[in-house]
């Protein structure tokens, strides 16, 4: 989301404008969700952390020092809650969690069903392959890319606070991870 817009929306929402709040939720939800997803919590924990981040944001609305950086505020809050949950859990799911692969094939979203219905089978297949190769990347690349792929694309500032990595290293890491993903796809003959 555009920073100037975010700043204005935060201001309006703080003044009681519910429509502005809703616009913030629409615009920043994918970022919060991506940050949570990038930390690979259980489904239930992911849902909780997402809610905690938004509850905190609602609570702090009007007290946030840099309203135009609300995306970073939310990303940072989500990250901290994720780390806390991970710390509290020794029952951390291993990286070869079969549930994540199942999700690709079973949990069909409406969008996915539409894709299936239309003659876009090849496109669906491509997306599924990209996703599957993405899921099999190492932790660090998967984490970075999961945040980068939120929609609209996050700023590097947001990515930085979401993952605790320096802004300056995001570009090079992004390149390496995307190259690596592409290499995997090529090896599967999927390019």
């Amino acid at each position: 989301m555009d920073r100037a817009d975010v700043g204005a929306l935060v201001q309006s929402a703080a003044d009681g404008d519910a429509a502005a709040w809703k616009a913030l939720v629409e615009g920043l939800s994918p970022l919060v969700w991506s940050v949570v997803r990038s930390h690979r919590l259980s489904e239930a924990d992911a849902h909780e952390v997402y809610q905690t981040a938004w509850f905190r944001f609602a609570q702090h609305l009007g007290r946030i020092r840099e309203p135009e950086k609300a995306g970073s505020w939310l990303a940072s809050t989500a990250r901290h809650e994720c780390l806390k949950v991970l710390k509290s859990l020794r029952r951390l799911t291993p990286t070869d969690d079969p549930q994540l692969l199942d999700r690709v094939s079973e949990d069909r979203t409406p969008e996915q069903s539409i894709l299936d219905l239309e003659e876009a089978a090849a496109e669906t297949e491509r997306i599924r392959r990209v996703w599957q190769e993405f899921e099999e990347l190492g932790d660090r690349c998967r984490q970075l890319l999961r945040v980068l792929m939120s929609s609209p694309p996050p700023s590097y500032q947001e990515v930085s606070v979401a993952l605790g990595i320096a802004v300056g290293s995001i570009g090079p890491l992004r390149q390496r991870c995307l190259r690596r993903l592409r290499a995997r796809l090529e090896a599967r003959g999927a390019v």
Partner: peptide, 24 residues
């Protein structure tokens, strides 16, 4: 490729609608 990932995430791992509603 990043754009493809973005589309894949929107389709295969979107924000659950009930969570979005709770945030609203």
């Amino acid at each position: 490729l990043e754009e493809e990932l973005r589309r894949a995430a929107a389709i295969l791992d979107p924000v659950p609608p009930e969570l979005r509603q709770i945030a609203v």
